[in-house]
């Protein structure tokens, strides 16, 4: 829809539509475990009349809000590890500032096309990625040993204490710098990338990786969110209904978690990402405006 067409629609239609769309995204995000930001930016950026700059600013706040809501209980329960999160959050947050500045400086069409390619790549990553419940880590690297990136957690499913340690810390730092850059540039939450890196590269147990990812995300997205906020890219009429919609949807999603068919939801998310990614790419190339 062209801007002049959307301007003819009453203003209040859009925040209401946004609320319901983000409510649905919140449910799907929890059921699929991919996070709200990565779904919000391509879908709202492609199918709503808002400029991508405002969508990215809101996407970061939305991902930040979700992470902030979940992090306290995950940290208090001991499932998330602040020790594991801090070094990688530091490198990621510095990179996310650079990404946000870069994203706001690049031409919109280039950003749309790059977003499309990134989202399509994320869809493939989610589709193909494997997860390891308890990765084997023979010995920590020197940096992981120096920082004591290890711990013990109680797994209630198996009723056992799981000792864990990590390795490949330098590779992890480089990857988190890249994740931070992408998160800042496109306003995406980074759970889709944090979890595989923590789990498969560093070797943290899956549950520790998922929980710690939220803590890393809250730090990384905070840094980039400030850049968008200071640039004027946060419109309350877009941001607030989105944040509230996703938060409420996430609560419903958490209740549906036990009964929802996880595999079907995962396929739905991949399909949504493929459609939204293709739409963003075609929009960026000027083929489908």
């Amino acid at each position: 829809m062209h801007v002049s067409d959307t301007a003819a629609v009453a203003w209040w239609v859009w925040p209401i539509a946004l609320f319901f769309a983000t409510f649905a995204l919140g449910i799907v995000a929890v059921l699929s475990g991919v996070g709200g930001g990565v779904l919000f930016v391509p879908i709202v950026g492609s199918f709503f009349p808002f400029h991508l700059d405002f969508v990215r600013g809101t996407g970061l706040l939305l991902a930040l809000s979700g992470a902030l809501s979940a992090a306290p209980s995950l940290l208090s329960s001991g499932l998330a590890s602040l020790r594991l999160a801090m070094p990688f959050a530091l490198i990621g947050s510095a990179a996310s500032i650079a990404g946000a500045l870069l994203g706001l400086a690049l031409p919109p069409a280039l950003m749309q096309a790059a977003l499309g390619i990134t989202i399509l790549a994320i869809a493939v990553l989610i589709w193909r990625s494997k997860r390891s419940e308890y990765p084997e880590v023979a010995a920590p690297d020197r940096l992981a040993a120096a920082l004591q990136l290890n711990g013990v957690f109680h797994d209630p499913v198996d009723s056992r204490e799981v000792h864990w340690q990590t390795h490949r810390t330098p590779a992890g730092l480089v990857l988190f710098a890249g994740i931070g850059l992408l998160a800042g540039m496109f306003g995406l939450g980074a759970g889709w990338a944090n979890v595989p890196v923590l789990n498969l590269v560093l070797g943290a147990p899956l549950k520790v990786s998922v929980a710690t990812s939220g803590v890393v995300l809250s730090v990384v997205d905070t840094s980039a969110a400030w850049v968008y906020l200071h640039s004027g890219a946060v419109l309350p009429l877009i941001a607030v209904p989105s944040i509230v919609g996703v938060m409420l949807g996430a609560k419903i999603g958490a209740r549906l978690l036990r009964v929802a068919p996880a595999a079907t939801v995962r396929k739905l998310v991949i399909a949504l990402l493929l459609v939204a990614g293709a739409r963003a790419l075609l929009k960026g190339l000027g083929i489908w405006n």
């Binding site: 500032i97 500045l101 870069l102 730090v219 840094s223 980039a224 850049v227 200071h230």
Partner: peptide, 26 residues
């Protein structure tokens, strides 16, 4: 970890100050 936390505070303060925005868009 105190050094890591201090560095993180510096990064977040730099972002929150708005001074870094002069290096990029907006």
């Amino acid at each position: 970890f105190a050094i890591i936390a201090a560095l993180e505070i510096v990064v977040l303060l730099a972002a929150a100050s708005g001074l870094l925005n002069s290096f990029g868009g907006g």
